[in-house]
Nucleic acid binder design. Structure first.
Lengths: 227, 227
DNA sequence: GCCTAAACGGACGATGTCGTCCGTTTCACA
DNA sequence: TGTGAAACGGACGACATCGTCCGTTTAGGC
């Protein structure tokens, strides 16, 4: 029901006051989610934003939509970081910075970890263009770092998801403990180095492999049928 | 208000039917928590156990009490595993088995990770005897493994908490993905090996250090004053 | 078998959150 | 400055969960 270019239309089709309120809501959402967790009442967000509940629901029909929009900026930062990592002439340094930056984002922007985890299963379903590109970039980054002899050969791209999700869990459990977060990141990065490869690793996650089809699959995407 | 040995008294002061129901509740709680998470309605647990809500509340006045009781067995397994690890002539093997066993418990007994994390901040406050002994044992295990040259010298006992909490987070995010869990454990254990120590690590968590006073402090316990 | 204290379970009021409805206000173009 | 569509916000009914109250049932010593 998009009015076919009626009288008023901002750059995004919103009236000025509506756009202003939308921004306020997003700021309030981040603050409230950071303080009370991602399950905080919608009314709390609305009150904080100085807006009625109806306005909030009009812009973001579901909590999920609000969460996604609130942390879209952080998600974009992740994406940009990947691009920068790929541009780094030293692939290991790029990889290292990627992990450190994303984890730092998770550590500093409270509420983001929950959003990150929540977005995970769903974002595997929605095959956006940006996501597919990110997957391809990650694959390239990993391969380069391995070819440079810095990243261990048995590292699998899904291991990055393992690292980030476990780090999410840590900062969720200990939101104020930056040192613990840094320690985990340091340990993980060291264990990803080629020199750290001593014993054999158990096989990589098949589930993550499926949800993020990182392997260069030439077959057309097949909708997995639920039993 | 324990009746001074009135007419009826089981070994634990409960009547036979009460004890039976208590057991049913605990079984049901584990099942429900595994299926619907630790925040599942109390009524669901009661229904599953085939008892009324009142009975449930009579035995376990708070959800927290129920959670603790439901996973007390798992907690005890953790404790026993530590004792066994300490008894192992090879301290590294003991350490490794400790980590692997606890993580396996977290992985297989769904609902336990949430209980584990939930218990963390509180159990640091309640200074039970078993807990203090566990801390001392852990300290001993770590020192021995380090003296044997297997565990890296800059490993800090609080790093075990970091590892277990992050693993909790991973299995919470991906409850069905055993492979991911195993991968993380393998990476972490490799990074704890002395050979993996390459760069310097950031300082260990001061918060965890305080909540679990693992360092052999001879000073009397001092109540940390909140500002 | 009797009897009483203990255990039981369902009903119920309180609380909090959700998401919608609808009368009012505001924007922005003419 | 007038006008109508868009945006606004608070009120409200629906719904779920909590934790207690109280009448009923049952265990188990005598």
């Amino acid at each position: 029901m998009v009015g076919e270019s009626s009288r008023i239309a901002g750059p995004d089709g919103l009236r000025a006051d509506a756009r202003r309120n939308r921004g306020r809501i997003l700021v309030a959402a981040r603050a409230v989610f950071a303080e009370h967790g991602i399950d905080a009442p919608m009314a709390t967000v609305a009150r904080r934003a100085g807006v009625g509940v109806a306005t909030l629901y009009r812009r973001f029909p579901t909590r999920d939509a609000l969460v996604r929009a609130a942390f879209a900026q952080q998600m974009e930062t992740c994406d940009r970081t990947l691009t920068e990592a790929l541009a780094d002439p030293d692939p290991w340094r790029g990889f290292q910075r990627l992990v450190e930056t994303i984890c730092e984002l998770q550590r500093e922007e409270r509420g983001f970890p929950a959003a990150f985890v929540a977005a995970f299963p769903d974002s595997a379903v929605e095959q956006t263009r940006v996501r597919k590109r990110a997957e391809r970039d990650l694959l390239t980054l990993v391969r380069r770092a391995q070819e440079a002899g810095a990243l261990r050969a048995d590292f699998h791209p899904s291991d990055l998801a393992v690292a980030l999700l476990s780090h999410c869990g840590l900062v969720t459990a200990l939101p104020h403990d930056r040192a613990a977060s840094r320690r985990l990141v340091a340990y993980l990065l060291q264990s990803f180095r080629a020199e750290a490869a001593h014993g054999a690793l158990p096989p990589p996650s098949a589930l993550l492999l499926r949800s993020l089809p990182l392997a260069a699959d030439s077959s057309p995407r097949q909708r997995p049928s639920r039993a």
